[in-house]
Every structure is written in C-alpha cells, then in structure tokens.
C-alpha cells in the first residue's frame, strides 16, 4: 500500500546509503566483520525499505523482478566459475591461487596484527562479491514474491 509522503521521501533518501553501506561490507569482507551474506542482506534491506513504502505496481517499475532473478543467477554462476578457475589453475576446486601471488588481490599478509590492505586475500573478495550479488537478488526476489501474494487494501 502507499504510505505517506514523509515515509516515501525518507525511504528514497536512505536507499542509496543502504546500498553503499552494503557494498562497503561486501568489499571489506576480508578485513573487517562482514562478508558477502551480511552485505547482501544490508543491500536487500534497502530494497525492503522501498517495498514497504510504496504500492506493488509502482515498485515493480523501478525494481524489476527479472533483474533481481538475473542478479541471483549471475552471483551463483560467478561463484562456480571462480571455483572452476581454481580447478584449472591449481588442481583443486576453489583453490586460492591468487593469494600472495601479486597482481589482483595478491599482496601477501604478515602474521599478527596489521592495519590491513584492500588488495589482499586472493579469491576471497571475488567470492564475497559473487555471494553479495546473489544474496541481494535472492532476498529481494523473495520479498517481491511475498508482496505479490498479499492482497492490497487502500485506506
């Protein structure tokens, strides 16, 4: 159902901040608390904010179900592709060949406390991004489906 203008404006205002914070949680998953699942859930919270403030027909114009389904499938395929790349590079599924090798996400890390660099951890940030995309798509699709099953009443 359509909420008041105050709720709608606040939801619009907070939606980009939710996305940016979720992206931060996903990208820094190997340095700070967080990771793909948590960051994806935060991003889906932004979508939920939009969903509760508007009518279902209005929301599907900007938040398309097919796009979110595509996000979900692409995330899972990215995960499997990263695993298969490890199979071809190092001989094991999900082999972390990028860690400590230089190049993309390849800086080695010394043991013990350190300030942490973003360009570390090899395969882990890629898997974090893949899982983040998948969780964002999956939770948003679940919310859209559930909202499509609710009969809407206008006050």
């Amino acid at each position: 159902m359509n909420m008041t203008k105050i709720v709608r404006t606040t939801a619009d205002l907070f939606y980009p901040f939710c996305l940016v914070f979720g992206l931060y949680v996903v990208l820094h998953g190997h340095l700070t608390p967080g990771g793909g699942f948590q960051g994806g859930a935060v991003m889906a919270t932004g979508a939920a904010l939009l969903l509760v403030s508007r009518r279902y027909e209005d929301i599907t114009r900007s938040l398309r179900q097919n796009t979110m389904k595509l996000c979900e499938a692409v995330g899972l395929l990215m995960f499997i592709t990263a695993g298969l790349a490890g199979l071809f590079a190092g001989g094991a599924f999900l082999y972390n060949g990028l860690a400590g090798a230089g190049g993309l996400f390849g800086e080695p890390v010394a043991f013990g406390a350190n300030p942490g660099g973003l360009n570390t951890a090899g395969l882990i940030p890629l898997l974090n991004i893949a899982v983040g995309i998948e969780v964002l798509g999956g939770l948003t699709v679940i919310l859209l489906y559930m909202l499509s099953g609710v009969k809407e009443t206008e006050p």
Binding site: L31, T32, P33, V109, G112, A113, N114, P115, G116
Partner: peptide, 10 residues
Amino acid sequence: APIFTNVPQT
C-alpha cells in the same frame, strides 16, 4: 573476535 585488522592481542 578472530580478525587480525588492528587487533590488540592474539
């Protein structure tokens, strides 16, 4: 918490 970023102890 088991995170090594600026951790005070091991």
